[in-house]
Design a protein around this nucleic acid. Structure first.
Lengths: 213, 213
DNA sequence: CTTAAATCTTGGAGTCATTGCAAAATTTCA
DNA sequence: TGAAATTTTGCAATGACTCCAAGATTTAAG
């Protein structure tokens, strides 16, 4: 069915508010910009802003929400004969080798991270998102392995896999904020990823291996 | 030097405010109690509350701050021939066997956790504390091993060790909230701890072994 | 014991995020 | 085209938190 005028306008408005807000936050920092200013700059009322975004933090982290099922998706899409952890490590390695902006390997990410780093509210929102990532990963592991609800292993495995992802993301953030360029950081984190892989036990690396056909 | 009247009064006032606030939060939940109510109930002004506590969350989580250097302390106090991870696992095992209230194994912890669970602001404050725990642990590992500032290993090891501690604490919280009693939870988590120990690689279990004399 | 300095407490005003409500504007659809 | 559904907006209110200056208390010197 074709999308009505109303739907299109809503999507545009939402996007515009988010863009305007992001611009302001990047310029002056999260705390220094009020929601009222965002509303003014976007030519809408404060209420309209809250109509689209549950909280101020969502104005800046709206995009990041595409990340919540990243690990679950990678695990579900793992190859035959590949374990959950191996799949995540492989996907991370591929993204790193491609110097992918999805991991923050892009110009401008430093400024983005700086805004988050300087605003406690944004940091906690990021933690909340990260928690969602683990939860969805654990759920995926349960489904993939058919583990009973009281089996603690999926939770433990999700924790280990999340450690890898979390560490990669946080080191990238730190290094980019330190002024390094994406290529440099990519190479450095690839080495780090090797180190991490070596720290994973065989039990982790062999958990939830997908049946080879 | 003897403590002056002023110092004593301040400490008492601070403690009293925290106690009163904790009581109210346990009764009615974090969000349902305003800072003004806490101030009233404690016979002080709102400004005095903020004089002692930087934010509302600190009224409830004041105690928890004793936890921030737990892992660093355990590592620094590890025995001869014992690694950092082994020390943390051992200390955790001892606390679990003792059904220690320091880990939340006590009646009333369920209600305490419930308040945190239901208040996003408290959850993020807990995350922040947890971050401090890792940071201090990493710092301790660097000092203990004399690793250079650019060595990534201490950070990775801190992450692995933190995973163990974090998982133990969160499972205890979850089970206690589910109405289980401390003894039960203790036994269950001891088993879980064994599982986790098996998931740690040799490299982790042998990192920062203290010289045997 | 008296008093000035240092320190605490308090009241009050103000900022800002967030919510609730009802009126006004816009879009959809019969 | 006109009523119904949906969106936008203005307005008022709540609650955390900050700033400031005045008042109360404690300390310490004389």
């Amino acid at each position: 069915m074709a999308e009505g005028l109303r739907e299109r306008k809503k999507r545009q408005t939402r996007q515009y508010i988010s863009d305007v807000a992001t611009g302001l936050f990047l310029e002056r920092g999260f705390d220094a910009v009020t929601v009222a200013e965002v509303a003014d700059a976007a030519n809408v009322s404060v209420n309209t802003v809250y109509n689209y975004f549950p909280a101020k933090e969502d104005l800046f982290l709206d995009r990041s929400k595409g990340v919540v099922d990243r690990l679950a998706r990678w695990v579900r899409g793992r190859e035959k004969g590949e374990s959950a952890a191996a799949a995540v490590v492989r996907e991370l390695r591929e993204e790193l080798e491609a110097v992918s902006p999805r991991l923050g390997l892009m110009d401008g990410y430093a400024r983005f991270m700086r805004v988050i780093h300087d605003a406690p509210a944004l940091r906690s929102r990021l933690w909340a998102i990260s928690q969602e990532v683990v939860d969805k990963l654990e759920e995926a592991l349960r489904e993939e392995t058919g583990a009973p609800a009281d089996d603690p292993l999926p939770g433990l495995m999700a924790g280990q896999i999340n450690w890898v992802h979390q560490t990669v993301m946080s080191v990238i953030g730190r290094e980019m904020m330190a002024g390094r360029n994406p290529g440099e950081v990519s190479r450095e984190v690839l080495v780090l990823l090797d180190d991490m892989e070596e720290l994973l036990s065989e039990k982790v690396l062999n958990y939830a291996v997908r049946a080879a056909e």
